[in-house]
């Protein structure tokens, strides 16, 4: 049995398992911290790529991502501060500048993690200072029951890992920089890629880039 430690998040005393990541401990205790790449049941080295779960840690000079902070006894955390809010707002705006915004027609409407973050942190879905970048990539509906719209993808990687866990492993990241994209081997359609249609990817996707039609 792992050792239990007590930490303080926003003044609230919380009991957590030593060594588990702070983000998990907070979420398990009903404290919401914005996040995309750290998926629900995932273990292993955190990807730490969405850069939204910043928190203030007492004794640290700058905000750190909660997904990479192992819990230790006596940790004192603030989930909000001017610096944290600034970083989260900037990161969120960057993501939204590259997310095709069509909530009304989106299957994730209402359950979308982006909407949740916007609501929790009072952020605009439409970027204010930045122009919208749209790569205009083709939508893939080749497998019955799954629609993949890469223009909505925030590159959190949850689908890639879900696909791997399911045993298919047809999804992966390719290219780099701004061109980075979740796709299949050789950019073939999902139907040609060996996708079994298990829809684990669609269930993992937090933003409606991969969705189920039924």
């Amino acid at each position: 049995m792992a050792e239990k430690v007590t930490i303080i998040i926003d003044g609230q005393k919380i009991s957590a398992t030593a060594g588990e990541m702070l983000l998990r401990a907070a979420l398990d205790n009903g404290i919401y911290i914005p996040h995309l790449c750290a998926g629900g049941e995932e273990t292993g080295h955190p990807p730490a790529s969405c850069r939204l779960c910043f928190v203030e840690v007492e004794g640290r000079p700058a905000p750190v991502p909660a997904c990479t902070l192992p819990v230790t006894e006596g940790l004192v955390i603030q989930t909000r501060s001017e610096r944290v809010d600034g970083l989260v707002a900037a990161g969120f705006e960057l993501l939204m500048s590259n997310h095709r915004l069509d909530c009304k027609n989106c299957p994730a409407n209402g359950s979308c993690e982006l909407q949740r973050i916007a609501k929790a942190r009072k952020l605009r879905l439409k970027p204010k200072n930045l122009p919208v970048l749209d790569k205009n990539l083709p939508v893939d509906d080749s497998v019955p029951g799954i629609i993949y719209d890469p223009n909505k993808c925030v590159l959190c990687g949850r689908c890639v890992r879900a696909c791997r866990r399911s045993g298919s492993g047809v999804l992966g990241f390719t290219r780099r920089g701004y061109q980075r994209v979740v796709t299949t081997f050789g950019d073939s359609t999902l139907a040609e890629s060996g996708c079994t249609g298990c829809k684990e990817c669609a269930r993992a996707c937090p933003v409606g880039a991969l969705s189920q039609t039924d």
Binding site: R51, P131, G177
Partner: peptide, 21 residues
């Protein structure tokens, strides 16, 4: 740097892109 960014994290992938634009 924008071309050589791996694209993994939000700030580097999109932040440098907007700055470059």
């Amino acid at each position: 740097t924008q071309k050589e960014s791996c694209g993994k994290c939000t700030f580097c992938r999109l932040g440098t892109k907007h700055m470059l634009d």
